[in-house]
C-alpha cells in the first residue's frame, strides 16, 4: 500500500500501573484528514506523543512512509517532513513573529535569502504582517496559536500532527484556523486531536474515537455522532 503514510501496530504505553495506551493499530493514508476524539484521559495525547517521538511507546511499532520510526528522537521524525503542534502551545516567547517563523524556515533553506523569502511568504499567508516584529509573549492567545501553525506549515510537511489546535480560540479565530487547516490538507495528511465537536464537525471526514487507551470506534463523521456508545461516554461534555 504505497499510499499509507502512517501506521502503528500494537502500540502501548504504560505510566507505572496506568495503561495510557493499549494495543492500538492505526492507519493513515496520504492526504487523509483524521480527527481523534475521546474523553479526558482517553490516551489521545499519549498516542500523539508516541507518534512525534516526545515519548517512547512501551510496546508496538510505528511506521512512517515505510520507515520504522519507533523510538526515534523528535528532531529526526520532524526532519522526515512531519509538522507537529503539541497540546501545550509551544513557541519562542522571547522572539518576534518573524524570528519564530525564520527559525522554522531556516531548517529547510540553507541560504538565508531563501529562508527570508519563505518567512515572508508564511507571514503573508497568515496575515501576520502588521505584527511581524512583535514579541510572541505580547500577542493574544489566538495569534500565538496562529504563529505556531505557521511554524508547522513552513517546512511543507507531508504529515501534520496537531493536538488541540483550536483550544481556547474565539469563534472567528476558529474559522480562520479551519481554513488554514484545509489549505494544509491539500498537500499533507493530517491528524487532529480535538475536543470541540463543533470544530470537528466543521473539518472532519473520518474520526477515530479513543476510550481508556483503546480505539473504540473508527468511522465517518455522521455514523460516529449517532453511535450510542460514543454518546454515552461523551454525556455531560460540551458538544
Amino acid at each position: 500500500m504505497p499510499d499509507v503514510v502512517l501506521e502503528t501496530s500494537g502500540l502501548s504505553r504504560h505510566f507505572g500501573g496506568v495503561v495510557a495506551l493499549d494495543n492500538v493499530d492505526f492507519l493513515l493514508r496520504a492526504r487523509e484528514l483524521r480527527c481523534l476524539i475521546g474523553p479526558n484521559g482517553a490516551g489521545k495525547s499519549t498516542f500523539f506523543n508516541c507518534l512525534t517521538g516526545l515519548i517512547r511507546p512501551s510496546e508496538g511499532h510505528i511506521f512512517m512512509r515505510g520507515d520504522e520510526t519507533t523510538g526515534w528522537p523528535v528532531h529526526r521524525i520532524a526532519s522526515l517532513g512531519v509538522g507537529i503542534k503539541t497540546q501545550v502551545p509551544s513557541v519562542m516567547d522571547g522572539l518576534t513573529v518573524h524570528e519564530n517563523i525564520w527559525l522554522a524556515a531556516s531548517r529547510h533553506h540553507r541560504h538565508s535569502d531563501d529562508a527570508e523569502r519563505r518567512t515572508d511568504e508564511i507571514i503573508a499567508r497568515l496575515s501576520l504582517g502588521p505584527m511581524s516584529h512583535q514579541f510572541l509573549a505580547h500577542l493574544a492567545h489566538g495569534e500565538r496559536q496562529l504563529v505556531e501553525l505557521g511554524l508547522v506549515m513552513t517546512g511543507d510537511p507531508w504529515l501534520v500532527l496537531l493536538d488541540e489546535p483550536a483550544a481556547g480560540m474565539s469563534p472567528e479565530d476558529m474559522v480562520r484556523i479551519g481554513e488554514i487547516l484545509r489549505e494544509i490538507n491539500e498537500t499533507a495528511a493530517m491528524i487532529i486531536v480535538e475536543h470541540d465537536m463543533k470544530f470537528v464537525r466543521s473539518i472532519a471526514s473520518r474520526i477515530t474515537v479513543f476510550h481508556q487507551g483503546r480505539v473504540l470506534l473508527e468511522d465517518e463523521m455522521e455514523r460516529v455522532m449517532s453511535d450510542p456508545t460514543v454518546r454515552d461516554i461523551y454525556l455531560g461534555r460540551t458538544a
Binding site: 520532524a78 513557541v91 522572539l95 522554522a104 511554524l151 517546512g155
Partner: peptide
C-alpha cells in the same frame, strides 16, 4: 549566523526547536 540564531531559539524553547527538526543535543 544561523547557528547563533538557532541557539537563541533553543534557549527560548528547546522542545519547539526539536519539533522543528533541530538536533538540540
Amino acid at each position: 549566523s544561523g547557528f547563533g540564531r538557532v541557539a537563541v531559539g533553543i534557549r527560548e524553547n528547546e522542545t519547539r526547536m526539536g519539533l522543528l527538526g533541530y538536533d538540540v543535543r
